[in-house]
Design a protein around this nucleic acid. Structure first.
Lengths: 193, 193
DNA sequence: GTCTATATCGCGATAGAC
DNA sequence: GTCTATCGCGATATAGAC
């Protein structure tokens, strides 16, 4: 599964063979096909696994009664930590979405959309309580999610921009600082620092 | 070229055959191979074309003496317009970057990185003149670019979130409003509205 | 430049022994 | 469950007539 995740991320669904995945995982192609009878079954299993982990990192905003600043800081940190710790998973998922979600739209509808709607609800309650400015929460979530995910999906380009071979913890810390600052300044009624 | 762009975006480099591209373009596979002797040559030609158009939309920030607010508004609007008008191009490019830029790192280094560095310079001058807060410009540009590009690359997921079959102009206008607000509130010393 | 024909290979998937 | 063997197909790429 981990081998498949990495290879799908690197070469895309159609760009990698079962032979390559199997040998990378230390099994035979037939052994692989015994557990995953079709290539697409393996692919969906990888995506399910990614989604499981992703949602674990995400549901921070919805399940706390923190004040907006703390909740948003935690949320952004969690999303960036996912990008840092599961870059391949993020990339497989991103590739699938870029392709138009041909093999996973049903699960996105079933699991991702409700999670984001729950986050929107939390934000709306903050607005009602006068803690946050009224904003288009759907697009706010899109921006938040795009900004944090970029550090996994587009790492190769960010590396070229930063002039280094790979992203380090410091880069994620810097990114977190910028994103947190942008979000807090735009949503809080009385930005702190 | 347009057919190849759309198909590479939809299925990835390894997920589409020359036969499919050729028939979609109304030529024979051999006719295609006459002009692009290798598949990877066609692919790179597509990426070059995307990059040409992309840079046209991007160099707005660097080539004007506008005040920061006007320049940033124009820049964000331009990036979103690219996402709106060239979604397939954006997706091909994103796929290549997600894969680690195996076929295009040299051109990104040569053309994209300098463009972004120029934008950084513009921002630094604004800071020196006291017009903007000091920020990590590299990450600011990453966030800006990720947020705007998401409306092309991840359109399928955003559609699921918004509950509609495809993005309309109104959605891009809403996104622009949110992104502009976020950016201006965080970089300007005296945000207007 | 465009066509027919074809070489050569690797792909996903299956069959059946053990 | 794992192995060897193999099917059938479609892929990139080339050769050569016209």
């Amino acid at each position: 599964m981990e081998a498949a995740k990495r290879l799908f991320a690197q070469h895309g669904y159609g760009g990698v063979s079962l032979d390559t995945i199997a040998s990378e995982a230390g099994v035979s192609k037939q052994g692989l096909l015994y557990y995953f009878p079709k290539k697409v079954v393996l692919y969906r299993a990888v995506l399910q696994n990614v989604l499981d982990v992703w949602l674990d990192y995400m549901d921070v905003l919805g399940h706390r009664d923190d004040d907006p600043e703390t909740a948003l800081r935690t949320y952004i940190a969690g999303k960036l930590r996912f990008s840092r710790e599961h870059p391949h998973g993020s990339r497989v998922f991103a590739s699938e979405v870029i392709a138009g979600a041909p093999h996973f739209a049903d699960e996105i509808e079933r699991r991702v959309v409700p999670a984001l709607h729950a986050d929107e609800q939390v934000y709306r309650r903050w607005v009602e309580r006068g803690l946050c400015r009224p904003m288009d929460t759907r697009h706010l979530m899109v921006v938040l999610w795009a900004a944090t995910q970029a550090y996994a999906d587009f790492a190769s380009q960010i590396c070229l921009i930063l002039g280094k071979p790979e992203l380090e913890q410091q880069d994620f810390d810097d990114a977190e600082k910028v994103i947190v600052e942008m979000v807090l300044r735009s949503v809080l009624r009385n930005p702190g620092d």
